[in-house]
Amino acid sequence: MASLNINGKEYQLDVPDQMPLLWVIRDVLGLKGTKFGCGKAQCGACTVHLDGVAIRSCTTPVSGAIGEITTIEAIGNDPIGQRLQKAWLDLGVPQCGFCQSGQIMNAVSLLRQNPAPGRDEIIHAMSGNLCRCGTYNRIIAAIQRA
């Protein structure tokens, strides 16, 4: 039995302790905005927040997800999330969009810790998030604009 707090809601779930948070979020709770890209902490597509900090949900067992979890579906309630979403749209960042939930979640976490990151700081913080469509330069510009 796992208790989870996701996007402000409490859940009691009968799932194995070792089940990665990603699959609980996607398959058990049906929140499909968080993506599966590698399952091995290599791509960042599955990024969510635990107490406001970006984590990889694909390698976080549900038993370790103690605290407040936020997913992309709720990031628009966060003022930083809102600003980033707007910057993303203004600059036309997404191509296919598949990586972008994770990109935005990681960017929110970055701006929360460092409100005005320089280019190198952005690259350092964001290089764990792959984008096969190659939207990196627009992501950097959007973070700087938000």
């Binding site: 579906e73 990031i75 749209l89 203004d90």
Partner: peptide, 28 residues
């Protein structure tokens, strides 16, 4: 955005808002 400069964000991308809010529907 053209070479670093934002001209206008219009017309907005059809799926843009869904993508940035996690509502866009990919395969699974």
């Amino acid at each position: 955005i053209i070479n670093g400069e934002l001209k206008s964000a219009f017309p907005k991308a059809i799926d843009g808002e869904d993508i940035v809010s996690g509502k866009a529907v990919f395969g699974a």
